[in-house]
Design a protein around this nucleic acid. Structure first.
Lengths: 189, 189, 189, 189
DNA sequence: CGGTAATCGAGACGGTACGTCTAGTCTTAAA
DNA sequence: TTTAAGACTAGACGTACCGTCTCGATTACCG
C-alpha cells in the first residue's frame, strides 16, 4: 500500500512533472482511495518528499586519504542524486512547496541537509587530523559550494551535470575550506 | 496599466508567497480586469518573471583590477539580487514553473542567465589579459560556483546571505577558474 | 442536496429574475459547490426547469359533466400555473433558453406540453361520448387556445390573470372544438 | 449607419439565435464601432426590438364586412408576423429581456401591443355598428385569444403556423366577443 | 470461529482559482 | 463631431483540483 503510493508518485513525477501531479492521478495510478494517501501524507509536498527519500539512506562517504579526494567523492554523490530523473523533475516544485510548509521544510532540513552537513563536517575533521587544514573550518560554505554549484548547473544554467566536473568542484570547495579570511584587500592589489 | 499590474505583483508576492498568488488577487489589487493581465502575460510564471526583471538592467561590473576583486563584485551583485524580498519569495516557485514552460524558461535563460554569463566571461578575459590566468577558461563552472553557492545558502540551507562571504565565494571561484586538474592543495592570488 | 439546490432556485428566481440568476448565486444560496449543480443539471435552463416541475405531477382533470365545465377547469389550472410567481418570473427566459437547447426543449414538450395535450384529448373524447361534439376534433388548436390566451394575457399584454376569465376562455375554446367551418355567429352549450 | 446596424442584426438573429447575438458580432458585421451602436440603442433588447419594428408600420385592417372576416384578417396578420424567421428567432429571447427592462417593455407595449389593440377595438366597434354584437365588448380578451393562440402554436407547442387555422381562430375569438357573461354554472348542467 | 473494528476503493462534497467570454464604457487617431 | 477600432473594468461562465467526508465491501484481529 505505502509502496503502491510511492511507486505511483515516482512513476508520475517524471511523466507529467511536479506541478501537474494531482492527488487524483496518484490515487488512480496506485489503485488506492484518496483517503489512503491523506492518511499517510499531510500534503502533496510531503508525499513527494517521502517518495523521494524512501530507501535512500546516506551511505557514509569513504575516506579517500585526501581532502581533495573526499570532496570529489561528495561532489559525485550530489551529482548522482540530481541525475535521478525523479529527483530532477521534482526538486524545483518541491523546493517551492517547502517555502509554504515550514514543518516539511524542517523535515527536509533534518533528513537531507543535516545528514549531508554531517558528512561535510567529518570530511573536514579528517583533513584537520591529516594536517591538510590548519584548524576547524565552517562546513556551511563548503557544503553550499558543492551542493549549490551542482544545483546551479542543473536547474539554473540548464546544463546537464557532467560527472567530469566533480574534481573541479572539489578543488574549488577545498579553497574555501583552506582560506579562512579573504587573503587581503581585493580592491587594490 | 502595465505598471499597476507589476506593482500589484510585487506587493503581493512577499505578502502571500508565490504559490498563493492568484490572478484574481493581482487583478483586484491592480484594479484591473483579469483580461488585461492575460493580454500582457501568458501565465502566472511569465507575469511574475516580468514583474521581477522589469527595470532591472544589468549594470556592468566595474573592473577592480584583480580577478579576485571582480569575482567579489559579482558575488555581491548576486547576493543583492537574492536579498530582495520579492526575489527571495518568488524564486523557488518561479523556478518550478519554468520547468513546465519551456518558452519562459528560454526567456529566463536569455534575459538573466546569459547576461550574467557574459559578465563572467568578460571578467575572465580581463584576468587573462592581466596575466592572472594562463589561458581561456570555461565560464560556466565559475558562473555556477558563484550563483549556486549563494542560491544554496539562501534556498537549500536556509541561511541568510551574509554579505561577508562574498570574498570567500570569490576566492573559491577563482580556484575553479585557475586549476584545470585538481591539485592536492593550492592557493593562487 | 437536490432539494437545497431546487429551493435556492425557487427562492432566487422571483427575487432577481431569470436572466440575473447566476450559477454562483444558486450555489452560494444552496451552500453547495458549483460542481454539485453541474453534476445534476446540464445548464441553467435545465436547472430552472427541473426546479419548476419538481413535485408538480399533473392531477387529472375532473369530469365536470360538460365540455364547457371541463374546459373551464383546464383554464383554471393553466391560470393557476402562470400565477405562481416563480413560474411567472422564469417562463419567458426559460422559453428563450429552450430555443437554444433542443434536448431540454424536447423534455419540456414531453413533460409539460404532452401531458396537458393528453388532458385536452381526454376532455374532448368525453364530450364526443356525451354527444356534445359531432366527432373527433384536433386537440392542438383547443390546447393552443386555452394555453395561449392565458399566456398572452400574462406575458404579452401584461395584464394579471383574472380567474374570472376562465369560463370565457372555455367558451371560446369550445367554439374551436365544435365549429369546423367558421359560422357567422354561434353559441353551443 | 442606422440601417447597417439593423441589417446586421436581422442577418445575425436567424443565423446564430438571439442568445448568441453579441454586440461585438453586430458591430463587426455592420463594420461599425460598438460605441456607434450604444449611441443609438440602450441595450441588446432595445437594439433587436428596433431592428424588428423598423419599417413595419401597421397597415390598417380592411373592413371585410363581417366580424368573422375581420378577425380572420387579424389572425392572418399575426400569423404573418410570427412567420418571419427573424421575428420567430428573436421573440422568445426578446420577451425574456423585456421582463428585465421596464422601459423597453413599455415601448413594446405602446408600439406593438397598443396598435394591435386599437385594431381589435375598431374591428369590434364595426361589428357593433353592423349589429353583429349586442354592445361594447372588452377587446383585451379577443386580442389575447388571437395573439396568444398563434403564439402558443409557434413557441409553446412547437407547431408551424399553418395559415389554414386563421378562420378557426377567428371563429373562436368571435365567441369570446359575443358571450359576455359565462352562460351559466358550468359545474352542474 | 464468529463478531467487531479498522481499513479499504470509490467518488460526491464545499470551496476556490482557473482562463475565457461578454456587456457596456472609455480612449484614441483619422476623417 | 462623429467615426472605427479596440482596450478597459467587472463579473459569470464551466472545469479542475484540493482536502474532507460518507458509503458499503473487505479484511484482520480478538474474544
Amino acid at each position: 500500500m505505502d509502496d503502491a503510493i510511492r511507486d505511483a508518485v515516482r512513476a508520475l513525477v517524471p511523466e507529467v512533472g511536479y506541478a501537474a501531479l494531482t492527488m487524483d492521478a496518484v490515487a488512480a495510478k496506485a489503485r488506492v482511495g484518496k483517503a489512503a494517501i491523506y492518511r499517510r501524507h499531510a500534503s502533496r509536498g510531503e508525499l513527494v518528499f517521502s517518495a523521494l527519500v524512501h530507501g535512500r539512506e546516506p551511505q557514509p562517504l569513504p575516506d579517500t586519504g585526501t581532502l581533495s579526494g573526499d570532496l570529489t567523492e561528495l561532489a559525485n554523490v550530489v551529482l548522482a542524486v540530481f541525475s535521478d530523473p525523479v529527483v530532477a523533475a521534482a526538486t524545483p516544485g518541491l523546493l517551492a512547496d517547502l517555502k509554504q510548509q515550514p514543518d516539511i521544510a524542517a523535515r527536509f532540513q533534518e533528513t537531507f541537509i543535516a545528514q549531508e552537513r554531517k558528512q561535510v563536517t567529518e570530511l573536514l575533521d579528517r583533513a584537520v587530523a591529516r594536517g591538510e587544514l590548519a584548524g576547524p573550518t565552517d562546513p556551511a560554505l563548503v557544503h553550499a559550494a558543492v551542493l549549490g554549484t551542482v544545483f546551479a548547473r542543473v536547474f539554473l544554467l540548464a546544463e546537464h551535470p557532467d560527472p567530469a566536473i566533480a574534481p573541479r568542484i572539489a578543488a574549488m570547495a577545498a579553497t574555501v575550506a583552506t582560506a579562512q579570511p579573504p587573503p587581503g584587500n581585493h580592491r587594490n592589489t
